[in-house]
Write a protein that binds this DNA or RNA. Structure first.
Lengths: 338, 338
DNA sequence: TGCTGGCACTCGCGCACGCTGAGTGCCAGG
DNA sequence: CCTGGCACTCAGCGTGCGCGAGTGCCAGCA
């Protein structure tokens, strides 16, 4: 176990390096932080911290920079979550209020997060798996063509065109619509399949094929669209990554375009708590020198989706975590209200 | 007017520079293109081209690079649109087929364009202004709460929540739904306002307020959502911009996040034809060293939206134009089919 | 045992210098 | 009007050097 002072030294190194983006030396440390000891002592402490793998020096005779392990310790033990100031909170509220629909909420959130953290923001659309059905609508567009519209409690709308095997009368459409809604409105997506299982039996044999087709399209929608959509923003902030960023920025941009990668990134969070993944802790190798701060958010007490930011490992963790948490809370509120 | 050979020299310079990304000199030119004249002659031609402002040299005693004006001449007079090869066409078809909904079509299109051109792709969602109403749906979610769903002929779905000033019965909802649809289904958005103008008169006075509220929400949706949405992709291709790109990439990424800027960018196209805007021809100064190739696309004969790519002024214009045109055509087909 | 000041050492960074070679402009001759 | 020749320019690159921040080690002191 490291002594109290050595932890203090590590904290100071992280803070200085995050601020200056340059390796920090023993002398500068003692000047900027009242550690109460001389540079020589700090040097000894640094030697120990380096042996333990918390810091490293880019070249011999340069200052030290934190390693991923160092950041990890910093985040776990040395840093709290910096709460937002009152003005910041008001700004968040102001920014998110007045969104007209779900797209708008997500769009505003992503811009807000990017702006607050000055990093790349990623917001997942509220997931369907945990959502409930608010309403199902069937529209007969043509004799053998039906449009299926699914509305969720989070305000998400999915629609599908269904080509029916046989003509399907207005009356039957209305009938199916009514039966469907009475069975699944307010129910969770996961429960829908078994709730509609025997529905075709209630129809005339001539309509049964169509009903089956519609139902299977509905179930497909539930499954397919569970592969969530997401929105990203603030990519221009990548240019602040560092002097060496040309080599860095490429794989990050590529990773950001791969929805699958991003979803996995966010997905690795345990449901409700905030998660910080630092450097090599990220599975995707393009993101080996980035950190991801993510958290779940939801309309009720339960998390229905995740949001987060991607930035350099050298980031202001307390501030970023504070911003991410605050935004997640407010978005949850907004969703609950609508 | 420039002589035939000098135009040929300009063409050669553009082609070589686009290929090598390095200033091209007189000697290299004569070696790589059978111009039939000596380097000295080419040098004279180059001097003339430089006087006329078509090419420039980065430093004294370096090769020449085309100016914006040079590219403009190249695009207007010297280059055609390179048609896609048969395999490329098949690939486009294959890639776009099997899209399940509008989001998917746009998403696939943007990825396809980015991949084909190796540049940043921008695709505008089919615009509402030129669209027609396929269906309007009203759902009574609560006694004084109605959801309004608007479905367009391009498959776009917009929904709004309406809080009614007074309770609104199921019967009235059905009545309003029927009347609305009979009036505006199949009509253009622009015509809707006057078509629904006198609709409240048909209702009992107690419902009239609610009907008015619903209608005004509908009209708002038509207007508000005319500010189009769009999708971008292939930003990772920005890293291929050039060696000096750190300074370049920043403003471009920023511009790409400003929907307004992008829409204006695409909007400057005359309706159906393809447009190429080179370097400083772009109003937004962040895009002064990029070129934009854009074209309208639509489900019928008419263009309902635009798509295009953003890349360095030093781009393969014939190839890019060919790809953009081909993709626009196929997307139009897909939309018409659905 | 742990902290401190001192000291010699390391080595990346920035800068000046000189060379090289691609490319140019100009000119005289065909 | 084209061509070969020639002198000139200058960005890029490699070399060498000095500076200074930063380190590790050690002897002395509490």
């Amino acid at each position: 176990m490291l002594s109290e002072r050595r932890l203090e030294v590590l904290r100071a190194i992280v803070q200085d390096y995050v601020g200056t983006e340059e390796p920090v030396g023993s002398k500068a440390l003692t000047e900027r932080h009242r550690l109460g000891v001389s540079p020589a002592t700090v040097r000894n402490d640094m030697a120990v911290l380096e042996d333990e793998g918390y810091i490293a020096q880019p070249h011999t005779s340069a200052g030290r920079i934190p390693t991923d392990k160092g950041y990890r310790l910093f985040v776990d033990k040395l840093a709290g979550v910096k709460p937002m100031t009152a003005p910041e909170r008001r700004a968040i509220h102001h920014f998110l209020d007045g969104a007209v629909d779900l797209d708008d909420v997500v769009g505003r959130t992503v811009r807000l997060l990017a702006q607050l953290t000055r990093q790349v923001a990623v917001v997942q659309y509220p997931s369907l798996t945990r959502s409930t059905v608010r309403h199902v609508e069937l529209l007969a567009l043509a004799p053998a063509r039906v449009m299926l519209v699914l509305i969720t409690d989070t305000g998400r709308v999915e629609q599908r065109m269904v080509d029916c095997p046989a003509p399907f009368g207005e009356v039957s459409v209305a009938d199916l619509r009514a039966r469907l809604n009475s069975r699944i409105t307010g129910r969770r997506f996961a429960d829908v399949p078994q709730l509609v299982q025997d529905l075709p039996d209630a129809f005339e044999s001539e309509d049964r094929g169509t009903v089956t087709t519609v139902l299977s399209t509905l179930l497909e929608t539930l499954v397919e669209e569970t592969e969530e959509r997401l929105m990203i923003g603030g990519t221009a902030n990548l240019t602040r990554f560092g002097h060496d960023f040309p080599l860095m920025i490429r794989p990050v941009l590529e990773a950001l375009e791969e929805q699958v990668v991003l979803l996995k990134l966010l997905g690795e969070v345990n449901d409700s708590g905030m998660a910080v993944r630092i450097g090599h802790e990220n599975a995707h190798e393009g993101l080996n020198s980035t950190s991801v701060v993510s958290v779940g958010y939801g309309s009720g007490g339960e998390a229905v989706a995740k949001l987060g930011v991607v930035g350099p490992t050298r980031m202001d963790y307390p501030g970023t975590m504070g911003a991410v948490r605050a935004v997640a809370r407010y978005v949850g509120q907004i969703l609950a209200e609508s």
